[in-house]
Write a protein that binds this DNA or RNA. Structure first.
Length: 578
RNA sequence: UGCCGGAUAGUUCAACUGGCGGAACGCCUGACUCUGGAUCAGGAGGCUCUAGGUUCGAGCCCUAGUCCGGCAGCCA
């Protein structure tokens, strides 16, 4: 889109309607009158932490409701007492709220509808469309058949309506042990869709529910519960991921047989990203195996981890917008995500100077024990952010990478005899390289030009590079945590025989180090976001204290020089024939 | 070997429903710059999975294939 006016800062106010196959379908539904409004829901099961894949779903659900002037519900699909916990309810609420999806006063729990679901089950029983089955789980599996062979009718399939009513009541009353009986829908044991072969609607579980306590001992299955939840809440479009495609006929069957309000289910592809994993099971394995530091480890694609890493809700929404919505199974390059966060932080992050790998510089013609304060711009993308004072003195630290004794071609930074600018300070020229007994460079002797204070030369001479620095006396030492991809391969499952994805863990996914940072950083609080100039974007970690500052690297800056240097080293030369 | 989906640039998506295949990210060039950042300008990159068919005209419709994904929990 090249005609976007550059003047509009952030046009967050105008809710621009995106375009994809789901929105197209909704427009069509509105046009034909199948629905007269839009009402969506995000229905997580409270059994895990949310990850970036859920953010995609949330953006689709919430974004669509917002764009069409409709409503959005947050609903916990808590129909299985064995797997669900309050801890996850809390973390999910926190994450959805953080993302900015607003459910207003519509926070619901599927389990709150258990009574209605129970009553509705009798409608089906009375129609002869549901029956109590005494088959064991093993027998039921056996009689279900296979994709190529039809199943066999349960011997309990033709129980009388009266007996079914009686038995189902007694199931609820707790007369039978776990697994003894189920309530099943009577559909078609020969259906090519396995899900239609008399699926279970209720199972017996004498278990305590995180919300309902011991009130129930029968619990509804997903297929029975979900459509009812949608119907009860007046959902118009029940959006879910592709693996539920085969469930749609069943979703529709229940609602049709019940003759109640009937939302439309539409499925989309879930998000996959390269160089990471995206499942609850693997998060558990990585945490339990101490490969990461917890569910909010900044290397994990959990929303808690991304928040700690320094990602903003806005950048995540932008990411979701860019990857779009389709039915194709796809794998997104994390570079897209990185680009989104760079774009957001570039506009809003406070700039600071921090030196990661210090090399001492002595300004030999600068007076000893004398200091001064220079003005530095807080954010060149946002002049309203103002300026700050940065202390300068005779002894400084610069980045080791910013000096080369023997500079390669196109290297513009400091080298013997060459002049560069210290950002917001002075031009300096390297006069002498000091080495230790082993020949390692330990210190640089430079001279500065007092006329260039602030960074400009009155005589108009130019330098080809500007480097960052800190005053050795004033700098604060802080811990840095530099992150890379969690895995070394785009597809972590691409492992040698006998190995699994764990073998593809990147040993350098976390490098703990330290830096010298200008004193302005002293007051930082967890969650603060900065650009360390010429280095990358950093976020103050949750564990950071004034006594020990800790910064997570959210993402590096783009590094064109690294590319130049890399391509110069690569032997990939072509000789063209004349 | 049954059923349901899917296949368009390196990647993720578009293509006003049958009318000259575009964008973003990535990549390459250049301009500008007190961040080798940002910004701006330009460029390379496609037998639209294959083979037939319908049509004046097919990425789109039809037929037959190929490849990929999902489905045989009393999980969601």
């Amino acid at each position: 889109m090249n005609d976007t006016p550059d003047l509009s800062i952030d046009n967050d106010d105008s809710v621009e309607v995106q375009s994809d196959f789901i929105r197209d379908a909704i427009k069509e539904d509105l046009r034909t009158g199948r629905f007269t409004k839009v009402h969506t829901r995000f229905p997580p099961e409270p059994n895990a932490y949310l990850h970036i894949g859920h953010a995609k779903a949330i953006w689709i659900d919430y974004g669509i409701a917002e764009e069409f002037g409709g409503k959005f519900n947050l609903r916990f699909d808590d129909t299985n007492p064995m797997r669900e916990e309050q801890e996850f309810v809390d973390s999910i609420i926190e994450d959805v709220k953080w993302l900015g999806a607003d459910w207003e006063d519509r926070l619901f729990f599927g389990s709150d509808y258990f009574e209605q679901m129970y009553e509705l089950a009798f409608v089906l029983i009375n129609k002869g469309k549901a029956y109590v089955c005494d088959l064991s789980p093993e027998e039921m599996i056996e009689m279900r058949g296979t994709p190529t062979e039809p199943g066999i009718d349960s011997p309990y399939r033709n129980r009388s309506i009266e007996e079914n009513i009686d038995l189902f009541r007694r199931m609820k009353e707790g007369e039978f042990p776990d697994g003894a009986r189920t309530l099943r829908a009577k559909i078609d044991m020969a259906s090519p869709n396995l899900l239609m072969r008399d699926p279970a609607m209720y199972r017996i579980r004498h278990a305590e529910h995180h919300r309902q306590g011991n009130k129930w001992c029968i619990y509804p299955m997903y297929d029975w519960a979900h459509g009812l939840e949608d119907s009860i809440e007046g959902i118009t479009h029940s959006l879910c991921s592709l693996e539920y495609e085969n469930h749609r006929p069943l979703y529709d069957w229940f609602l049709d047989e019940l003759e109640i309000y009937h939302p439309r289910q539409i499925e989309f592809a879930r998000l996959n990203m390269s160089y990471t994993v995206m499942s609850k099971r693997r998060f558990i394995e990585l945490v339990d195996g101490k490969h990461v530091d917890g569910y909010d480890d900044p290397r994990l694609p959990t929303l808690a981890g991304m928040r700690r890493r320094g990602y903003t809700p806005k950048s995540i929404y932008e990411f979701c917008k860019r990857i779009g919505v389709a039915k194709t199974n796809s794998v997104v390059d994390p570079a897209v995500l990185e680009n989104c966060i760079r774009e957001d932080l570039n506009k809003h992050a406070q700039r600071l100077m921090a030196v990661m790998n210090p090399l001492k510089v002595v300004i030999t013609n600068y007076p000893e024990d004398e200091y001064e304060e220079l003005d530095a711009v807080n954010n060149p993308e946002d002049l309203d952010a103002g300026t700050r004072k940065v202390p300068f003195g005779r002894e400084l630290y610069i980045e080791q990478d910013d000096f080369r004794e023997d500079p390669p071609p196109k290297y513009f930074r400091l080298s013997p005899g060459r002049e560069v600018r210290l950002r917001y300070a002075y031009f300096i020229k390297c006069e002498k390289v000091i080495k230790d007994a082993d020949g390692n460079i330990v210190e640089l002797h430079c001279t500065y030009d007092p006329e260039t204070r602030g960074g400009n030369a009155p005589d108009g001479r130019k330098v080809k590079a500007t480097i960052h620095w800190v005053s050795a006396k004033h700098a604060i030492e802080a811990e840095t945590r530099l992150y890379e991809h969690l895995f070394t391969k785009p597809n972590p499952d691409d492992a040698p025989d006998g190995e699994d994805y764990i073998s593809n863990l990147n040993p350098h996914s976390l490098e703990i180090g330290s830096c010298f940072i200008e004193p302005y950083a002293a007051e930082t609080k967890p969650g603060d976001k900065f650009q360390f100039e010429r280095v990358g974007y950093f976020c103050t970690d949750t564990t950071s204290t004034p006594h020990k500052l800790v910064f997570n690297r959210t993402v590096t800056l783009r590094d064109t020089w690294a590319k130049i240097e890399k391509s110069a080293k690569s032997p990939n030369q072509f000789i063209l024939q004349p």
